[in-house]
Structure formats: C-alpha cells, structure tokens
C-alpha cells in the first residue's frame, strides 16, 4: 500500500465504503426490521421507533406463535446441512485424491459428469424427484433432502479438492512409503494434514450450498419432520389475516445467519495457506 498516492488512497476508501454499504445495507435493514414492533413496521423509518424483542420471542420463546414452525426447521436445517457436508467432503476427498494421483480410464468422464450435474437446473428435476420420493417413501424425510443436496455439494467438492490435491507434491507420499508407511498411512499422515485447509474450505462451501437451498426444501417436504428454515419462513403467518409476519421473518433470517457467521469465524483460522511451503525446495 506504500506505493499509493493520496489520491489513489482516497479513491480506494470511497470504493470500499460504497461496496460495504451496498452489501451490508440489506442485512442491517433486516436486523433493524427484526427489532420493530408491528406498528413500527409501517413507520417508514430505518431505525425502529420503538425497540422490541417481541419478534424473537415469537419464533424462539415457548408459546411464541411461530415457535412450532421455526425451531424444528432450524434443527432440520442444521442436521441436514451438516450431514450432507460431511458425506460430500469425505466422498469427495477420496474421489479427488484418486483423480489427482491415479491415471485411470474414465477420469475425464467423472470430472465432466460432476460438472454437468452441478450446472443442471435444479428446478427441472424437482418435479420428477417429488414423484419418485413419494413412491419410495423418501418424501418429507432427512435422507430425502440429503441425497439431492449431495448432488449439489459433491461436484463442487470434487473439483475444489482435486485442484488442491494436485498441488501436494507426490514425493511426500513416496517418501512416507519408503519410510515404512502403507499407502493409506501415507495418505493419512502425509497428505491429509496438508490437505486440511483445502478440505475445510470445501466443507464451508458445501455447507453454504445446503444451508441456502430453498427449491428442494419447499418441494420435497410437507411437515416439520424435515422442512428446512428457508422453506419454513414461507409458512410464517401474522397474528391475523391482516397482519404481515415481516418482523418474525426478519428475526428468523437473523437467527439463521448467525450459525453461518460462526462457522466462518471458526474455520477461518484453519484455512491456513502456505502450509506446503518447505516440503520441497522453497
């Protein structure tokens, strides 16, 4: 940054502020809405005229009107997203390792298929899936969502991890094998520790994809047995026909954003780049 003139620096500050405002405004706006009373919603002001926890009580406190809807769906969302992330990352780790290290027939095919699956429009397979799931009993269950989520998370995980494994020098594994390791030990002791940052990055991406899904969530569930939060939000209702559930939805949106922020903060420290430095001539 030392090489910048005052003019450039001011330019950068202005751009940064504009981008921050642009991206943070909706979030802050929702945060403010979640603290407004029913009457405050229509005040037309950015800040709540009157601060209240009422909306949070609606979705979280015992006896809150939307609590039955929100809490089970939060549990569903966390459970389903975590399981599909773990499964995707474990499967993708093995798959990507094979793709990066081995020379086998059909390697290109796997990669292209993965890419094709990930760009396939979700909406077009939702209806067939709905019918299929109903006839085989997966409709409105956790596995019924985990499986389609895997189709979204696996391809991207395979691609990211394969790129990551390719950077790890093969000599490390060979050295481990000469030092007395079985191929699996070499993988576990020499490759996995180095791949950890890549694996965590991939896990975060996969988790976001599952967490943010709406189309599968709304189409393949009917009760709180498996309905995730994004779908549940659309079922919120006001206290009467003439009341909008805006406040409660805003509060729920804030609540589901919090885990994501926590996840990012936890894993941020583990995404340490440059760990491979020193393995080979640096």
């Amino acid at each position: 940054m030392g090489g910048m003139s005052t003019k450039q620096r001011i330019g950068w500050v202005v751009i940064t502020v504009v981008v921050l405002l642009w991206s943070l405004f909706p979030v802050v706006s929702i945060l403010m809405t979640s603290f407004k009373t029913q009457a405050g919603l229509f005040s037309g002001k950015f800040l709540p005229p009157e601060w209240t926890w009422e909306n949070y009580a609606t979705i979280l406190a015992p006896g809150g009107s939307a609590q039955d809807l929100f809490l089970p769906s939060l549990r569903n969302s966390i459970g389903i997203s975590l399981i599909s992330t773990v499964v995707a990352v474990v499967l993708a780790t093995f798959c990507a390792y094979a793709i990066a290290r081995l020379d086998f027939r059909g390697k290109k095919l796997i990669l292209t298929t993965a890419l094709a699956v990930s760009v396939f429009p979700v909406v077009s397979i939702v209806t067939p899936l709905f019918n299929l799931w109903r006839s085989i009993g997966l409709y409105d269950t956790w596995p019924g969502l985990i499986i389609p989520y895997l189709s979204l998370t696996l391809p991207i995980s395979i691609w990211t991890l394969a790129a990551f494994f390719r950077q790890i020098p093969w000599e490390l594994e060979q050295a481990a094998q000469v030092d007395g390791a079985t191929p699996f030990q070499a993988f576990r002791k020499a490759v996995v520790p180095l791949a950890a940052p890549g694996v965590f990055t991939t896990a975060i991406i996969a988790f976001f994809i599952a967490w943010n899904d709406f189309v599968y969530g709304i189409s393949l569930t009917s009760t709180s047995a498996a309905r995730p939060v994004p779908a549940a939000l659309s079922f919120f209702t006001g206290a009467s026909q003439f009341e909008e559930p805006t406040g409660a939805i805003s509060a729920a949106a804030i609540v589901v954003t919090v885990p994501i922020v926590i996840v990012v903060l936890i894993f941020q420290r583990r995404i340490v780049s440059g760990l491979t430095q020193g393995a080979v001539k640096g």
Binding site: P169, E171, L172, Q174, A175, A176, Q177, V178, D179, G180, A181, T182, K189, A190, P193, L194, L275, T276, Q277, G278, A279, V280, K281
Partner: peptide, 20 residues
C-alpha cells in the same frame, strides 16, 4: 515387495520433508 517391506531409506532430490 512394497517399498515399506524393502527396508531401504531414500533421500529425495526435493528432500520431501513433511511440512506440518
């Protein structure tokens, strides 16, 4: 025999040290 069963020690050109 697999490398580990041959009981040989090797020094690689790029050293192949475990960075972690």
């Amino acid at each position: 025999l697999a490398p580990r069963d041959r009981d040989l020690a090797m020094v690689f050109q790029n050293y192949a040290l475990y960075p972690h």
